[in-house]
Amino acid sequence: MSGRWSRWIHRWASPPYFYRVSRPWGRAFAVVSFVAIAIGLYGGLWLAPPDFQQGNGFRIIYMHVPSAWMSLFIFVFLAVCGLIGLIWRIKLAHAMASAAAPIGAAFTAITLVTGSLWAKPMWGTFWVWDARLTSELILFFLYLGVIALSRSFENPQTGDRAAAILAIVGAVDVPIIHYSVDWWQTLHQGSIFRGNPFDGHLHTTVAPSMLWPLLVMWLGFMCYFGALVLWRARSEILLRQLDTDWAREAVGAP
């Protein structure tokens, strides 16, 4: 790496520097996310016209779709942090990954629950073996696998690096899972149900008044993730640098 680039990475990635800088950034993200989510909710629940097909029931997409995007984005985030941590041995990258994993799992759970709550009025049952919900379910198990692996080693460094490898292989597998489940669904299209509530709906949401709240909610969720991952990463980096002097000063220990 050219001198300037590697100096920048090592300066930014040095734990004490990160610990100091991440506080203001975290606060900024938190404020933006709070405002964006408020606006998104107002736009989505109050302003947007009801859908001609599903009435007001469609408003669940303002929680379902952004959290689905987040669950995918955070898994890619895990893989990228894992790669950086493995190749350049940057401890901060592993701390960010182990901070982000539970948040990703939480968003996946939200997606699954809101998805089934949306399927009930549209389809009469809480669980529909729909392609997207099924791949989201598999993604949830992938998250649990990464988290379980990272916590089953007594040496945190080994746990981080093993989980990083699993996250990278998992991230390669996610699109494969997505398309294999899609292919699986088209195969059984005829036997279980005609068309499905999710596909039909997304393509027809052209009305801008329905669309902008979705994007604002997505921005809100991204900033929420930014604030939360920085906050958790500060604790994770402390846990990995227990006996360093800067950690003691940061904690204010004598």
Binding site: F141, G145, A148, L149, S152, F153, G170, D173
Partner: peptide
């Protein structure tokens, strides 16, 4: 290889591998 150092890997292994094996 991921769980080679662990004693109780038999329980952990399915959790790691089955999601990857679905395709």
């Amino acid at each position: 290889a991921l769980t080679v150092g662990l004693r109780h890997s038999l329980v952990l292994l399915p959790v790691l591998l089955l999601p990857l094996a679905t395709p």
